[in-house]
Amino acid sequence: MEIINIKQSKKNQSILPEEILKIEACINYSIIFLKTGHQLIVAKTLKKYEKDLKNCFFRVNRSTLVNINSICKSSGDQVELHNGQCLTISRRRLHNFNSIVNPNFRKLNQ
């Protein structure tokens, strides 16, 4: 798996995609939520992360990109992450979620 290099206030940090719980948009910045509970603010848009991480992440709504492996369960238009947080999948993205993520999710949990 690829390593993500993040530049934060003059220092570089490398993280693996599986360490990320979700990424949220904040104007032209992104907030990376790590599974450890730490947060990183990066001057990179969510759209760029979506393009770079398209194999293991899914954009559930306008402002959130979720690590597929962090999804504990899904029901209807709701997903629950391993940390207990629930997110709503937008109507536009629900069909893609069900066709792309749900089959993979079922295989992982069998």
Rank of each mutant, 00 (worst) to 15 (best):
Y29L: 10
I20Y: 05
I4C: 04
F58L: 03
F57D: 05
Q13R: 10
T88E: 14
I27A: 15
K7I: 01
S30E: 03
R91E: 09
K73W: 12
K51S: 15
S9W: 01
V66M: 00
V66D: 05
N109W: 10
N69K: 13
R93L: 10
I41M: 09
Q13I: 14
K73G: 04
Q110R: 12
F33H: 12
K73N: 13
F33P: 03
Y49K: 05
K44V: 08
F58N: 05
K48E: 11
H82G: 00
Q8W: 04
L40F: 07
K47V: 08
Q110E: 12
N98P: 00
L94G: 08
Q110A: 14
K11Q: 07
R92E: 15
I68D: 04
S9L: 11
Y29W: 09
L65Q: 03
H38G: 08
G37K: 07
R62A: 07
S70H: 05
F105L: 15
T64W: 01
I100G: 01
I100A: 09
H95M: 12
S74Q: 06
K47C: 03
P17I: 04
I23R: 03
I4R: 04
N109Y: 12
K73V: 11
N98E: 14
T64C: 13
E24I: 11
S90I: 11
